[in-house]
Nucleic acid binder design. Structure first.
Lengths: 226, 226
DNA sequence: CGCTTCGTCAACTCTTGTGTTGACGAAGCG
DNA sequence: CGCTTCGTCAACACAAGAGTTGACGAAGCG
């Protein structure tokens, strides 16, 4: 907010000067913070814990970042954009069937979750509209982007259904929630150090999904679905 | 904790006397709290908001409950036990195939989520080990129960696979995470007032799942899964 | 060697939200 | 009608945690 405080001015100047050491330490703080956010949640994470783990006094943290929220912002920033770009690239590829595009997006996303661990999981975990100062512009922007993301995926699924590549007896939105429910739920149990790759997980889920969504396979009608 | 405070003694006595009005108002408070917890999260919910919505002063709330945590406890209490009992009943039914047991459990759970709305979603949302005083006995107990729940489901899936009712090329734990990932993720989007029944959602998910998990169907091997 | 900037921290301030106290008006009831 | 209990709340005490101030030793640099 107010860039008037002394430490704030020093922080700004240090940032723009761009010393390598300074940038490295700042990055390290964000890294530590991200793991704490993942483990405890943003709200329950105390700045003092982050500071201690970095071997610093809590006050010193403010030499590197202006607030706890900045640590969160820094953590999740970019995550969405990279994925969004990938999705848009794949959606536009005319050489692939709709289902194949969906497949690649799906696996690509999970791989990205893993590579950026734990950033994306922090993002999934912290519902932006639940974070304290959710009125802030960046939080709102995130929400907007997420919604657009979902829209894109639903559209893609609808195309696949219309093209006869997927069965047509389930509303696209529900199909999307099924497919990405499996994926997003990984934030509760997946650990890159757990001996299973993100790719393997995504391919397994995909295999269940796609083979359950093939059109024409003999199956019962779904009860109580209009 | 300390039942020594004055208001605490009056609360206890009111509770044990068992006046209908008192019990009703208390229940109403829990109901209101539950919706706030669902919407904002436990941590971000302010007691003053709950009080205001109930038309009371914040202090008056303490005439009915001893703490904010009690409101949470009251909200999620019982939810797990009812479901657990149902699961155990169905698992023990020898007239049903493994897959059919799993099916009924699955749909039954979602129906229960809906009927108890928003209680179960609050429970899913608040990772118990992230709640402030997660050291409390009841929170620990919840964790234990949840873990047993998962074990039961995995066991059931393993039985179904071993019996040849489900394909055997995906580890049971991963299968469980797929199936219940879809289900649990509903806490992010499902609204009983949204025009779709819980049963319909569960049946749709189940249909995708079961038809994707049939053994013997022609499908590619899963890449990169040991 | 003086002077400045750098990284640091002890010791604040400030805010927010929880839980308690003590008392008051209104019912209930003997 | 006096006496107790009920539901209520203004006013407090308390705690925790975020962010700020001001200064100090060490390192860099003229």
């Amino acid at each position: 907010m107010a860039k008037t405080s002394n430490i704030s001015r020093r922080r700004s100047s240090a940032l723009s000067e761009g010393s390598a050491d300074y940038a490295a330490k700042r990055k390290e703080l964000v890294r530590i913070a991200a793991f704490h956010f993942k483990k405890r949640g943003f709200g329950a994470t105390r700045l003092v814990d982050i500071a201690r783990e970095a071997g610093l006094d809590r006050a010193t943290v403010y030499y590197y970042v202006s607030s706890k929220e900045e640590l969160l912002r820094e953590t999740v920033e970019g995550v969405l954009d990279v994925n969004m770009a990938e999705v848009e690239r794949l959606i536009a590829d005319p050489d692939l069937s709709w289902v194949e595009r969906l497949h690649r997006i799906y696996v690509g996303l999970m791989v990205s979750y893993e590579e950026n661990y734990p950033a994306t999981f922090v993002y999934i975990q912290e519902q932006m509209h639940q974070v304290g100062s959710y009125k802030s512009d960046w939080a709102k922007e995130f929400l907007t982007k997420t919604r657009r993301f979902d829209q894109l995926l639903i559209m893609l699924i609808r195309e696949a259904i219309d093209a006869g590549e997927l069965r047509n007896d389930i509303p696209p939105r529900l199909v999307e929630n099924a497919l990405f429910g499996m994926l997003n739920w990984t934030h509760r149990w997946f650990d890159p150090a757990g001996g299973m790759t993100g790719e393997a997980v995504a391919e397994a889920f995909w295999s269940i999904f796609v083979s359950g969504m093939l059109p024409g396979a003999p199956r019962d009608a779904i009860p109580s679905l209009g």
